[in-house]
């Protein structure tokens, strides 16, 4: 009997679930529950919408995963998105789409690098450093939006509105946000797995002193992680702008908190040193699927907030218990 059980335990599928975070079980369960709960959920149009949201918000979460990996936190992401988006639209209307795109991405990197510099050169803990940046960016965003609540993109791309390109479909289902998110996932996943800098990032977050002794430049990698975070934020803001064809002063609100919750639900450790792209996107998918099905069921936002909170806390508890069991077994 015990031998049988051991054999069962060592089958690849079971091993996969045992070794990885419980998130995979959770997400399967949730999807099953969603399909049984609402027939509207499985409509192709909804699946595309849902995966588009996962792609758009996923990019922000990818950036955040890097920041978490090196043991940092970025509170300013929400207002980074708002600032990047606002400036992108302003520039789009004056100098055209492609230059605006380029400048926005550079700007995103700059803000990210600035955050990294504050953390590494000024030695300010990232929580406080990015809180300060957040407050300042909030003021800037409000100044830029002083005369309007939202600013429409008047510029067109090849004679079409920007929102047209957000919904353009390759093979009937692949939209730009899917493609960009997949590119990010694959490229940055490879970076984390095969490049020296990527591998070293785990050391920076997990055990900075060991990194220091083995000759890793912790500060450089931290700055790099924050820069990737800023870059991802600017990409996310461009996708959000493309979807709405406008930028608004509050377009980043909640995005950062959702990203943090998603990444944590996926199993990335905030203390650093643990996480990968698969965890990140699975976490985003979980949160977005739950939100989507709650909207489909006609739940009010208050109820949705309550359930999201409970899910986050439950996942944390589950994670704690499983890691305790793992520790006991080892």
């Amino acid at each position: 009997m015990i031998a049988k059980l051991d054999k069962f335990k060592s089958t690849p599928v079971v091993r996969f679930f045992r070794e990885n975070n419980s998130i995979y079980i959770l997400i399967l369960v949730i999807i099953a529950a969603c399909i049984s709960a609402s027939p509207k959920f499985t409509r192709p149009a909804n699946i595309i919408n849902l995966t588009q949201s996962i792609g758009t918000y996923g990019i922000l979460a990818i950036g955040l995963t890097f920041i978490f990996l090196v043991g940092g936190i970025d509170l300013s992401l929400a207002y980074q998105v708002a600032l990047d988006g606002t400036l992108f639209v302003l520039m789009c209307n004056s100098i055209g789409f492609f230059p605006a795109l380029l400048i926005t991405l550079v700007l995103g990197c700059c803000i990210g690098y600035m955050n990294g510099t504050i953390v590494t050169r000024l030695k300010i803990p990232s929580l406080i450093g990015t809180l300060a940046v957040m407050t300042s960016l909030k003021g800037l965003v409000l100044i830029l939006n002083n005369d309007s609540s939202g600013r429409a993109v008047e510029a067109t791309l090849f004679g079409e509105r920007l929102s047209h390109f957000y919904n353009i479909k390759l093979f009937g289902f692949l939209t730009p946000s899917h493609i960009i998110c997949i590119i990010f996932l694959v490229a940055l996943g490879m970076f984390l797995k095969y490049k020296r800098d990527g591998i070293n990032m785990y050391v920076v977050g997990g055990n900075p002193e060991a990194g220091l002794f083995s000759g890793i430049n912790n500060d450089r990698l931290t700055r790099m992680a924050f820069t990737i975070g800023g870059f991802c934020a600017s990409f996310c803001s461009i996708l959000v702008v493309m979807r709405m064809n406008t930028s608004t002063y509050n377009m980043g609100d909640n995005l950062d908190i959702i990203a943090i919750c998603s990444v944590v639900v996926g199993g990335v450790k905030m203390q650093g040193g643990k996480g990968n792209m698969a965890m990140c996107i699975m976490g985003v998918a979980t949160i977005q699927i739950i939100n989507n099905v709650m909207t489909k069921l006609g739940m009010r936002t208050a109820m949705q907030a309550l359930i999201t909170g409970i899910v986050v806390i439950l996942v944390l508890i589950l994670d704690k218990i499983t890691s305790n069991i793992k520790a006991n077994n080892a």
Binding site: R43, N49, Q52, G150, M244, T248, N292, K296
Partner: peptide, 29 residues
């Protein structure tokens, strides 16, 4: 705004609505 954008997409994909009364978060969006 983001919540509302998703809700709009959701209403369109459900395809059961005859008329929409919209109180927008943001008039430009």
């Amino acid at each position: 705004v983001n919540t509302q954008t998703e809700q709009v997409a959701s209403v369109i994909s459900d395809d059961i609505v005859d008329l929409v009364v919209l109180f927008p978060v943001d008039s430009a969006a």
